[in-house]
């Protein structure tokens, strides 16, 4: 807050503005600035529960899509604003870790968190909350009109019958897109994965900039097949759209909504309190309302439209590898597919 006053002397014509513009900082309460990619309704539920347990800590949220939040944090690297990152993909947190932006901390009850769903280092730089993985939205009404068979696997999607019928998120701008690409490469190896994507590319109508839009478009019949993540697939189906949700059998790309403390925070005490709370069973129960898999085993309950063996379908995912190779993979992907319109 201290630098906000700088405005007053430098911009005389805005003399009246600080009253309106400056956020009011209450001294009695510690206020954490948290960057997040969580859905708004989730934020509300988590915040309510947390502030009930810790009334002396307030949270100010900065919410945006994973891509934007990640970009923001990297942009602000020289002058970080956030105290914590909560509910952002583990791939992004691994990038932050590489950049030295995170402060390792072992929250209370870390031992109860599944080792697969946290930073393997000790103490960890980030800890997972819940898993979100890839899914395919398939519009049954449009498929019937067009006579499209229902695909079951990733490889089914390369069938020429789907030419121009598939939308997928662009991995360069969408976390969901990247988790698919990362999964294919880790499952099949570089050579085969790129061969697969070459074939898939022939059928793609559009690459979208978000992981939600392909499913929404499938739901609206704009394009009958959309690659997405399971939370969006479930909400779209619940909104009444005529879609089936497909979980390809080869294995699902996935990522973790996870949290970490920013290295520069001046409110370490409060930040650790929030980290501790995020790893409690109470918090995990809240995650379980929206996600089929949470970081603490034994808490998740089955969800509508999500198969019971969902967790088993997840492919092997190495976040350190994923973060390290991110730039390289995206450069290759962009080179191969980004100028799609050229080949029309």
């Amino acid at each position: 807050m201290k630098s906000r006053t700088g405005l007053r002397w430098l911009v005389p014509f805005l003399a009246a503005a600080p009253l309106a513009f400056a956020a009011t900082a209450q001294a009695q309460k510690t206020e954490l600035l948290v960057y997040t990619a969580l859905e708004t309704d989730q934020i509300k539920a988590y915040e309510d529960a947390f502030t009930k347990a810790h009334p002396n800590i307030g949270i100010k949220w900065v919410r945006d899509s994973t891509g934007v939040i990640t970009a923001k944090l990297l942009a602000e690297k020289a002058n970080p604003q956030a105290d914590l990152v909560v509910g952002v993909s583990a791939s992004s947190l691994a990038v932050f870790e590489n950049e030295g932006m995170l402060q390792p901390y072992a929250p209370k009850g870390l031992d109860k968190i599944s080792p697969a769903y946290r930073d393997p280092k000790n103490p960890p730089s980030w800890v997972g909350m819940d898993v979100y993985g890839s899914a395919i939205c398939f519009n049954t009404v449009e498929a019937a009109k067009l006579g499209l068979p229902k695909p079951q696997t990733w490889k089914d999607l390369t069938d020429p019958v789907y030419k121009g019928k598939i939308v997928m998120p662009n991995p360069a701008s969408s976390g969901t897109g990247y988790l698919d690409v990362a999964a294919w490469i880790q499952m099949w190896g570089e050579a085969e994965a790129w061969k697969y994507m070459d074939a898939l590319h022939q059928n793609i109508a559009q690459y979208q900039h978000s992981g939600s839009k392909p499913c929404r478009q499938a739901g609206a019949g704009e394009f009958p097949i959309g690659l997405t993540f399971e939370y969006r697939a479930v909400t779209t189906k619940k909104s009444g759209a005529p879609i089936d949700i497909i979980f390809p059998t080869e294995g699902l790309g996935w990522d973790l909504e996870s949290s970490g403390i920013m290295k520069n925070t001046k409110k370490l005490e409060a930040a650790r309190t929030l980290m501790d709370w995020l790893a409690t069973p109470q918090a995990m129960e809240l995650y379980a309302k929206n996600f089929a898999v949470v970081a603490m085993p034994g808490i998740a309950k089955p969800l509508d439209y999500v198969p019971a063996d969902y967790e088993k379908r997840l492919s092997k995912n190495d976040f350190a590898w994923s973060a390290k190779n991110r730039d390289k993979i995206l450069a290759e992907w962009t080179k191969r597919y980004d100028a799609k319109s050229e080949k029309k």
Partner: peptide, 11 residues
């Protein structure tokens, strides 16, 4: 930048 306080504000 001494004005970096306006980053992220309405201003």
């Amino acid at each position: 930048n001494p004005l970096n306080g306006i980053y992220g504000t309405m201003a």
